[in-house]
Amino acid sequence: MPETSPLGPEAALARLLDTMARLRAPVGGCPWDQVQSFETIAPYTIEEAYEVADAIRRGDRAALLDELGDLLFQVVYHARIAEEGGSFSFADVAETIHRKMVLRHPHVFGDATVRDAASQTAAWEVQKAAERTARAETGTLAGIPEGLPALMRANKLTRRAARVGFDWPEPAAVLDKLEEEAAELRAELPEADPARLADEVGDMLFVLANLARKLDLDPEECLRGANAKFARRFTGVEQRLAARGMAPGDVGLEAMEAEWQAVKRSEKGLLPG
């Protein structure tokens, strides 16, 4: 277990803010940190958020501690750049989210009541819609960030559209649409026009995101699971070949497919090891 910090939260945060200021200092600071901007740091912010999620999925609390620190540092970094430019400070960031949470939880900080988590979710969405209206963001799809991962954004777009009735009645109807899109993609294969192929593949991915939503599944999580399964099974193929002194490049597709099927059967307990 990691050592418990001897500092309280206020002192620990103050020290971190001071560390960030020193890194960015024009004199005596870090040359790399001095030249960073919102735009150059943003990819690291996204990466750190994913690393937090990965530590949670793995149940690794030591890694989670480390990754949460990295993510907090990203918030401090952006706030420092903003403060240097006269836009806002870290205190402004903290106060803004505090006010937002109080506003969105009137059942905790006010006199409102909610029956359960589902009721709170509905009230949360109503409040967020009011906030979008106050920001003059009009339209059902307003406020959904374009920078989200594509499958995640597809999920959010269609959830928002479904709230106003623009949705398939049941999952089977989405499968019908998927078959329609697959036929359109197949029709484009002979021409092999990259733009048209990309358009049709995009349509299929969008429909699949819809199907996951209709089945109450997260499409990102579904694809992560498929990625992990592929990596696990392909590694199994390599290991089986290595046991015979071979590598994937030494055999043909048919032999690799046979090993792939053997790995699948092994996972289901039909073969030893």
Results as ranks from 00 to 15, higher is better:
265 R>P: 07
175 L>V: 15
55 A>D: 04
138 T>L: 11
65 L>T: 12
250 D>P: 01
237 V>I: 11
67 E>R: 07
106 P>K: 04
93 V>E: 01
179 E>D: 14
182 A>T: 10
117 A>H: 05
230 F>Q: 08
224 R>W: 10
167 D>H: 14
98 H>D: 15
252 G>A: 03
161 A>C: 04
226 A>F: 13
27 V>G: 14
17 L>C: 11
96 T>S: 13
59 G>L: 03
212 A>S: 10
116 D>S: 05
73 F>H: 07
105 H>L: 11
19 T>W: 10
141 L>K: 05
191 E>R: 15
197 L>N: 05
10 E>G: 00
12 A>M: 13
50 Y>T: 07
2 P>H: 05
113 T>M: 07
241 L>I: 08
111 D>F: 08
270 L>Y: 06
146 E>I: 04
117 A>M: 05
2 P>A: 09
225 G>T: 12
163 R>E: 15
60 D>M: 00
8 G>W: 04
194 P>T: 02
211 L>P: 06
167 D>G: 06
239 Q>I: 07
179 E>G: 00
36 Q>M: 10
257 E>R: 11
220 E>A: 07
155 N>C: 11
250 D>E: 07
248 P>F: 04
77 Y>A: 10
101 M>K: 10
267 E>H: 08
151 L>I: 01
22 R>K: 15
150 A>W: 14
11 A>E: 15
215 L>Y: 06
56 I>K: 02
269 G>M: 10
120 Q>V: 06
208 L>D: 00
107 H>R: 06
178 L>A: 12
240 R>P: 01
133 T>L: 14
193 D>H: 06
120 Q>N: 09
160 R>M: 14
197 L>I: 14
